[in-house]
Structure formats: structure tokens, C-alpha cells
Design a protein around this nucleic acid. Structure first.
Length: 461
RNA sequence: GGCGCGAUGACAGAGUGGUCAUGUAGCGGACUGCAACUCCGUCAACGCCGGUUCGAUUCCGACUCGCGCCUCCA
């Protein structure tokens, strides 16, 4: 039985889908004005793990992750770069797709872009005005009338009075109330804009998700997800917009990933302490990053550090060492691994516990392999099948372990040649020479492993 | 100030009212020419103070410390 923690109720509860066997998920994706950082990677990977697992257990998943390709930051950045807004967003979307592909993140089923849903945005805004939940102001902007929406604050536990008292938003005389937020912004001279009943302008920040989710999944859908900083104000405002406009519950359940930290501080754009995915991938195999992110429950914070990435690297080496040279066989196996693994994942996607099951399986696999047990191939197959259900162990063991020679690193050909020399030296009992070769390789990060069948090697990072 | 989250062995990180998490590191052994890989064994923990209980790391309350949101950020 699938159980999921809901940000709104703050409880973990059995999941009930709108349609039997089907799950609709809308996740807030990227605002494309810069390269993705590890925080973005966490959201991408978390929901990729979740959707892969759900599918592996028979759910039909409709996974939507949007792209916000018009907003203040994008306009600002495009101006700074002296490039057009579409040129900037196209560039960043392409980079994002490269990053996620490297991380073994499958594309969402639908990836709507805000600029393709302007009409939907205008329609919702008009509906909100008609229903009295929004008003065109003297400056031409259209604002949401927060006080009018009864449930405002229910997701993030805010109440309107506290927000008003502590409002740090710059005072804006055009608003009826300082906590009102903008749905439609009047375009400034020379800015990108679309025609609307309220003049040329562009959408505010939150309205695009109300429009895109409505278009892709309907007025009411199963799960809405996103990063740790989205419950307030973004998701709170989405609820206010969608529920007021559509007159029904918006998302049935809310999921939020935990923060990535660096030195005990949240990694964020505004603090400037972020690492981009592409920078990290220069040093680590993409699957190392994936395993690092899956090593902690998706709702907890995770600390980014060289040590934790190294640890993930070591773990992955253990997995691939176990699989190396073994031919998986799809044979029935009498064990509880599958059941334990699925139980862990069905319990609010407990990846650390699920991965612990994989390690227990590795131990059995290694033992079987040592003893030339007939179950070896079946165990390897089981390990690969379980890992695959969360998008791990996607690479060939040999090529993962040997890696690609990076700039200035010793090539596979040279290594193989030295191994032949060493084999000759060992045959001659010239251990001084054989050890010299091994040490020389080790100094370049190449570790040798002698087996009855010969010598294999892997690249340490 | 308001709302919320967390504190587990050397480190990372799950979990449970009374028997093992798991991984790395350490220690002892096997394998090996010596190693590495691998295997066997082993050490080690539940912030602090009360309460409930036959029994609490696990439930309840106070405290201390750390963190997040309340403003753009995944």
C-alpha cells in the first residue's frame, strides 16, 4: 500500500488516487534564466525516482513539469546579456535538458511553457475578476484579492493578519491590501508583452502554474510537487487562484523536496552558494550525483560536500564491483528483497531504506559469486531490476569502473599494455618490478585487481 | 516576533515501545607472492530533564542547540 506525506495535512497517509491505478502529478520546474544547480537536480531526481518507481509497480503516471520562461529575472538577465528573452530561455532550456539527461532523469510526460499558455492565464485572470477575487488597479496591474479567499494560508500555516502585520513587501499604493499579489503586470516600455483586456502586459509569477496545470491535468489532480521554498508564497497563491477560479479543490496532495545545504546553509541563488549541475559533473560520474541525492530521504535536507560525493562514489563502486563480470539471469529467486524494497519505497519513497536492501543483496551476490553458486546470475538480475526501478545502476559495470580517461589521464590502451608487462614480471617472480608497475598505476588513480581469470582494473576518482 | 522541522555510533543515514538497519572508516581473521577486490568475525548510538509504562532512542511535556519559511530562490 502506497503512503505519501502531505505538506498540507502534515501527515503521512494512504494514497487514494482520483482514478484507480492512475496518478497525475504536476511539479513546478525551472525558471530558465541560468544553469540548474544541485538544488534543482534534487527536485528533478526526486520526482524521477518517484515516477519511475510508481510505474514499476503498475501505476499509470501522468507527470507534468513546467518551464517558466517569462518573468522578472529572465527579463533582467536577458537585458544584462544583451540578448532577446527567447534566445536566453532557449539556451537555458537546452542546457537543462542536457543536465537531466546526464543524470538519467527521464523527460516528463508533458513539459508546458508559460509563454505558450498566455490565453489560459488571461482566462483565469478574467474569471477571478468576474468572481470578485481579483481587481484591475489604477496602475494597470491586476491583483489577487487575498483577503477574499477563505483558505488563504492553509498550506504554509500563515494567517492573513500576521502576513499583513509583518509585510516586508514594498508598499504599493495601487494595491487594496499589501498582501495582494499580481496576476497580470502592465508592460514597461520595450518589455516583452502580450495583449490583454487590461492592456499590453505579462503574467505575474504564480498564475502560469494555475493555467498550465489546468490545461494539462484539469481543475483537480492528484499530486502537486516542488522545491522546499515553494509552499509560500508560490503554492499558496496557486491554491488561491485555482480554487477560487475553478470552485473545487486544486491538488489533492502536496509534496515538497528538502533543501540542499552547503556548510549548514541552504544552497540558493540569492545566497550565491550554489553549485551548478554541470560543474559537479566535471568531477563526478552523473550516477554518483544521483546516488548521493537518493541516499537521503527526499523530504530531509541534504548536505553537499566533497566527502558526501566521495562516499556516493565508493558506494557505487561497490555495486558495480559486485556486478562486474557476471551475466544476469532472469530466473526465479526465493527471497524477500523485492518485497522489502517495495515496502520501503511505498512508505513515502524511503530511498535510504530501499538502497540498504540493495546493499544486502550485494552481499548475497558477492558471496554467491565467490562460491560459484548457481544463483549468482539470478541475484545480479534481481539487483539490477530493483535498482532500475529507481533509475540506478544504469551503466555497464566495466565501463563505469574503468571510466573515461579525462584530460591528462592515462588511457586504457597504456594501462592494458602495462598489465601485460606486469603479468610477465610476475611469471618471472620479479615482484619488485610487478609492484613497481602496480604502484605507478596507482599513483595515476588506477587500481589493479588480480583474479584467477586475470587482472582487471578500475579508475579511482 | 509568527509558523514549522530536526537532534541516532568516528562520519553519513534509516528505523523501532522489549532481537540485525545499511554504507564508509576502525579492529581481528581468510584469500593474495605482497596488495587491491571479496568474504567471515568484531567494536560502537539514540541531545538534556521529567512523565506514562513491567520496559522508551521510539509516546507525552519542558529545556538546550541547529535549521527552514514569513522577501526573489528548487
Amino acid at each position: 500500500m502506497l503512503q505519501i506525506y502531505d505538506t498540507l495535512t502534515k501527515k503521512k497517509a494512504p494514497f487514494t488516487p482520483l482514478k484507480t491505478g492512475e496518478i497525475s502529478i504536476y511539479v513546478c520546474g525551472m525558471t530558465v534564466y541560468d544553469y540548474c544547480h544541485i538544488g534543482h537536480a534534487r527536485v528533478m531526481v526526486s520526482f524521477d525516482v518517484i515516477t519511475r518507481f510508481l510505474r514499476s509497480t503498475g501505476w499509470k503516471v501522468d507527470y507534468v513539469r513546467n518551464i517558466t520562461d517569462v518573468d522578472d529575472k529572465i527579463i533582467k538577465r536577458a537585458t544584462e546579456n544583451q540578448e532577446s528573452m527567447p534566445a536566453l530561455t532557449e539556451r537555458m532550456i537546452e542546457a537543462m535538458h542536457e543536465d537531466e539527461q546526464k543524470l538519467f532523469v527521464l523527460p516528463p510526460d508533458q513539459e508546458p511553457r508559460a509563454t505558450a499558455h498566455i490565453q489560459g492565464i488571461i482566462d483565469i485572470t478574467q474569471t477571478l475578476i468576474d468572481k470578485g477575487y481579483a481587481y484591475p488597479a489604477s496602475n494597470g496591474d491586476v491583483y489577487y484579492r487575498v483577503a477574499k479567499f477563505e483558505g488563504y494560508g492553509k498550506l504554509s500555516n500563515k494567517n492573513i493578519d500576521d502576513l499583513r502585520a509583518g509585510a516586508r513587501v514594498a508598499v504599493n499604493d495601487a494595491k487594496e491590501n499589501p498582501i495582494d499579489f499580481v496576476l497580470w503586470k502592465t508592460a514597461k516600455e520595450g518589455e516583452v508583452s502580450w495583449d490583454s483586456p487590461w492592456g499590453a502586459g505579462r503574467p505575474g509569477w504564480h498564475i502560469e502554474c494555475s493555467a498550465m496545470s489546468k490545461h494539462c491535468l484539469g481543475d483537480n489532480f492528484d499530486i502537486h510537487g516542488g522545491g522546499p521554498d515553494l509552499p509560500f508564497p508560490h503554492h499558496e497563491n496557486e491554491i488561491a487562484q485555482s480554487e477560487a477560479a475553478n470552485g473545487c479543490t486544486f491538488a489533492n496532495l502536496w509534496m515538497h523536496a528538502g533543501a540542499v545545504r552547503v556548510n549548514s546553509e541552504k544552497m540558493s541563488k540569492s545566497l550565491g552558494n550554489f553549485f551548478t549541475i554541470r560543474d559537479v559533473l566535471k568531477k563526478y560520474n552523473p550516477e554518483v550525483v544521483r546516488l548521493f541525492l537518493a541516499s537521503v530521504h527526499y523530504r530531509s535536507y541534504i548536505d553537499y560536500s566533497e566527502a558526501s560525493l566521495k562516499e556516493a562514489q565508493t558506494k557505487l563502486e561497490r555495486f558495480y564491483q559486485a556486478l562486474r563480470g557476471i551475466t544476469p539471469v532472469a530466473a526465479p529467486l526465493d527471497n524477500t528483497y523485492q518485497a522489502d524494497f517495495n515496502a520501503a519505497m511505498n512508505d513515502d519513497f524511503n530511498t535510504p531504506k530501499a538502497i540498504a536492501v540493495l546493499f544486502e543483496l550485494v552481499n548475497d551476490l558477492n558471496t554467491a559469486s565467490r562460491q560459484k553458486d548457481a544463483a549468482t546470475g539470478a541475484l545480479a538480475h534481481q539487483l539490477l531490476a530493483l535498482a532500475d526501478s529507481i533509475g540506478l545502476l544504469q551503466q555497464d559495470p566495466e565501463s563505469f569502473l574503468q571510466g573515461d580517461a579525462k584530460e591528462g589521464e592515462i588511457s586504457a590502451d597504456v594501462i592494458e599494455a602495462l598489465i601485460v608487462d606486469r603479468k610477465q614480471a610476475r611469471a618471472n617472480k620479479d615482484f619488485a618490478e610487478s609492484d613497481r608497475i602496480r604502484d605507478a598505476l596507482l599513483a595515476q588513480g588506477i587500481v589493479l585487481k588480480d583474479t584467477r581469470e586475470g587482472t582487471s582494473w578500475f579508475r579511482e576518482s
